[in-house]
Design a protein around this nucleic acid. Sequence first.
DNA 1: CGGCCTTTTTACATCGATGTACATTCGCTG
DNA 2: CAGCGAATGTACATCGATGTAAAAAGGCCG
Lengths: 347, 347
Amino acid sequence: MARPRIKDVARRAGVSEKTVSNVINDYAHVSERTRRVVREAIEELGYRVNLAGRHLRRGRTGIVALVVPELDIPYFAELANGIIAHAERKDLTVLVHRTRADREHELAALDGFRSDFADGVILSPLALTGDDLRERRGTLPLVLLGETVEPGFADHVAIDNVLAAREATAHLLGLGRRRILAVGGRDRPGPGTAEARTLGYRRALEGAGLAYDPAAVWPVAEFRMPHGAAAVAEALAAGHRFDALLCLNDQLALGALRALHEHGLRVPEDVAVVGFDDVEAGRYSVPTLTTVAPDTDAVASVAVELLLHRIAEAGDGGEPPAPPDERVAPHRLVVRESTTGAERSVR
Amino acid sequence: MARPRIKDVARRAGVSEKTVSNVINDYAHVSERTRRVVREAIEELGYRVNLAGRHLRRGRTGIVALVVPELDIPYFAELANGIIAHAERKDLTVLVHRTRADREHELAALDGFRSDFADGVILSPLALTGDDLRERRGTLPLVLLGETVEPGFADHVAIDNVLAAREATAHLLGLGRRRILAVGGRDRPGPGTAEARTLGYRRALEGAGLAYDPAAVWPVAEFRMPHGAAAVAEALAAGHRFDALLCLNDQLALGALRALHEHGLRVPEDVAVVGFDDVEAGRYSVPTLTTVAPDTDAVASVAVELLLHRIAEAGDGGEPPAPPDERVAPHRLVVRESTTGAERSVR
DNA sequence: CGGCCTTTTTACATCGATGTACATTCGCTG
DNA sequence: CAGCGAATGTACATCGATGTAAAAAGGCCG
């Protein structure tokens, strides 16, 4: 038997279609009796609203798109989990996309291609530039995650990456380390998480009266374990001396731990290692990983909240949009074995 | 200005709405000239189809739901990546959901709640029972992943878990290990990935003429690192002796590695460790992890293919559905340091 | 150049739910 | 118990795209 429609429920309950709709949508002025009759009819027929019809009529889907570089980078998976949880609480469904850190994909997300269902987009860009945002044609409500592009184009949520990197670097300096390699760093001005963290690294060094050496900023192709391992191998092969690594994310750090192990270097005795993101793997690695833990739950919660505001705003029509909202989420440095050794680790 | 509709394009191009629709959908009988004029109008107005309208009319959304226990378990993230990639190739969009391994959530997915947009569902259940499937009301095309429930209710794709576990166990036996703990095992008959792997473990032991000891099957609450670590700690505390661990997934194995390290046990000298899934972290752990590598790409590809068949079938109407298709994806044992030590590792 | 067949284009109904505007019913007050 | 305002319920149009069926245009033949 075909799936029942609102019409069938109406007939069965002996009321109009609109009344059924009113019951479904909890419209106030429906008598208790009518409500009950309709509910029973719905139950008996096993009726469920057809979302396509509703969406066409309402112009809203209740779907938000979450666009991240990769799902199999644990940080993004954990972030996605958080966003899904918060979105569900607001009766939103999340459509997850990945861009492979590809600019084309990110642009497509901006214009809502394939996210076309979505009422709004939460985007964690890696390759996007400020120009891309300036020229954006789409008008889809948008929230950016991470310190990605110059501010001023859309709401965005991030931790204070400059400060976080500075603290992490200061921690290493406090342990007496002096030759710190910034793995994944980018020594160029401008926006971007890598740039912000590199800047924090630089400030910490200079704040301690140490010289900032651009050669100690070691770029990587991607922020994954293989690239962290490769960076260490390359740096050693190139004759670089270092007594600490500031890895710009945990994946790089975990890859680096492995490479250091293979080269017979002890962590933290020979080389101390810090990461960013506080992924679960860093809590079980050998040694466990000191890292900057962003308050992912706060990021997720604020992102959803901001997006909901924008969506509501877009629905109002007319009124000029509020200026972009820039939010900073908390972070903290979690000290583990990779900097202070096993005896001081806290589990 | 409001987003243009097909009507606006039609007016601008001086043709009917249907002709515009025909151009959009590459209908054959449209003259080249008309096609060009319409394309230009579309371009000029920046028109894009409204999916809600299309869905209502077509009754298909082009969305498939992928339902997994957790996104932040790397295996599922990697699997999701694969499925998204294959689905995109078929012009499908993937809506990812997670169930927290909760039966209620899995049931909801079966009936399409919140996946209501979807034309079909790919579900990786953990808690579902055969009865749940038997009583299922929904008629949404469905593909199951993993050796989850008794066969016969829906298409499903999995590796041969019994065989895989048998091979992994045989590998340990071949190294001379005799007291092998099955971490995450479930010593009860019936369907389920854990059950299948436990059975393979048992068969390998018995095939080698060794006694199967139910006490060596160590259940866990969840298949995550903390539980792997806890299992080892508990087993040691309980005075269990073992010279190898067959961990039923890599997360458990990685947690176990950490716990063994903390208890001063060397891997593989004192205890050899095997996992399942071949997640990236196991390629960079210290020591690297021997594991059963499922051909995830094959799983993803077959799952999408099966689902597409079912969706097409559902569209035909009338005809009785084809019997459930049971597919087996390839796997292989990847031997690394956690069983054979550093000197024999292959990087 | 009329007749017939094919190609191209169109008008209209339709998918399912809900907003609008109006009709009806109900409960009270005086 | 007439009359009035509030509470309920309904008919109909509408959201945007596309399938149906049929009209219009074009091509070819004798």
